[in-house]
Write a protein that binds this DNA or RNA. Structure first.
Lengths: 221, 221
DNA sequence: ACAAAAGTGTTGCTACTACACCCATGA
DNA sequence: TCATGGGTGTAGTAGCAACACTTTTGT
């Protein structure tokens, strides 16, 4: 490799979504250093040569900054315009990440004193071009929910159909018809009836379901 | 930026497709230097700081290596596994590129003595992980043809419906029903009847169409 | 008895598939 | 007149959207 070839900083940034109390939320951290000190940002950081893959870098940075681990990650796209980071030329690879709201407790770690979950409809101003990265990831989340079985990444092990519907409604930010939703989901054949019910409040108990397969796959031919 | 942060090589690689004589082809170059000297590869090269965007890098490298310019480019995804390039850690951003077969004449340039168009069904062995990059781009091409109006990037200014159908058939590698194809395309309302015909051989002349709008857009809400 | 969420079917519309014949032309 | 590709319509099916009432429970 000739000397004249330039090298650049690489980061991975993970846009982590969850649906918590019927609200779509995203994980952000407060920056402790300049630039954009004190502003919120998508968790991520610099690729190191010890990271064997970009995925590994995304996992490592997410864990270091927020304590979140064992999470679904899907690589999205690269952002590399000049000037997007005032420190120098940085190419960022964005990730879509999903986590069940059961697992969103943040353990404060060295880097994560100010990590938190923010409703997507009420975001703080974000550092860098993270608004663009987040919007792109949100669009991707919607299309993935419609074309793959990733919903299982946002639900607990067993759940009711109403809970599942709330996940779709939160992500798409619109209400769905109960009968049509249930018909569609049942026709996909992804769910297993657990023959248990969940009683919650003064009304008829809801049947519980789980996914037959918790392996990410497309629903189209 | 602290000294301990590592930097990496970045490349952009453009997977350029065309449909030439009803066959889907991809543009490859023969490598003139090690590693993989003499093997074929997707055209691309190293990001330079003068490139204001990743797109600009992809355009520049494609032009330098193949003489191809003024072409549709869409950024796809990053490849960054360790060991994918024996020279060192290289992160590659792939691009989907499309060109009309009218414009595929390759002018030999300094770097492009061995650029050529290869049918996708009969590819030579490719350098690096370019087989993976190509397959990913091909999947993307198919889904883009189904959900956007990019077909205009693969057709001449005016064309017949049969020519358009051949583009879809070549890309999807399957035959389509003539009546259904025409019904679908007409219902999209993208085409303008040019009130001209094209006579070619001993049979009824074909009506010529062009796109109302040659601006890339999605066909779904 | 009532309040609250669970659960369930039908109808109309749209979009896709499969399929066969006539038309305009040059040789 | 024949060979060639251009051009057209219909019937069946599958999937989506709109819509209201009964069931089961706790209080």
């Amino acid at each position: 490799m000739e000397e004249i070839i330039e090298k650049f900083y690489i980061t991975t940034d993970a846009v982590v979504f969850t649906v918590d109390k019927d609200v779509l939320k995203v994980l952000l951290i407060k920056r402790k250093n300049p630039p954009f000190k004190g502003m919120f940002a998508i968790p991520g950081g610099f690729l190191q040569n010890k990271d064997k893959t970009l995925d590994e870098c995304a996992y490592r940075e997410l864990y270091e900054e927020t304590g979140v681990k064992d999470i679904f990650l899907k690589k999205l796209i690269a952002f590399g315009d000049k000037g997007r980071d005032p420190r120098g030329r940085v190419i960022t690879v964005s990730y879509l990440a999903l986590i069940s709201s059961e697992d969103i407790e943040l353990k404060p770690t060295t880097d994560a004193s100010d990590a938190g979950w923010f409703p997507v409809i009420r975001l703080p101003k974000l550092a860098f071009d993270h608004k663009d990265i987040l919007r792109h990831a949100l669009d991707k989340l919607k299309s993935e929910l419609d074309t793959t079985n990733i919903a299982f990444q946002l639900l607990p092990e067993i759940f009711t159909l109403t809970e599942m519907q709330k996940v779709y409604e939160a992500a798409h930010q619109k209400m769905l018809d109960k009968r049509n939703f249930r018909k569609k989901i049942k026709s996909l054949g992804l769910l297993k009836d657990m023959h248990q019910t969940k009683m919650e409040g003064a009304h008829r108990p809801a049947k519980l379901y789980s996914f037959k397969n918790k392996i990410y796959c497309s629903l189209r031919a």
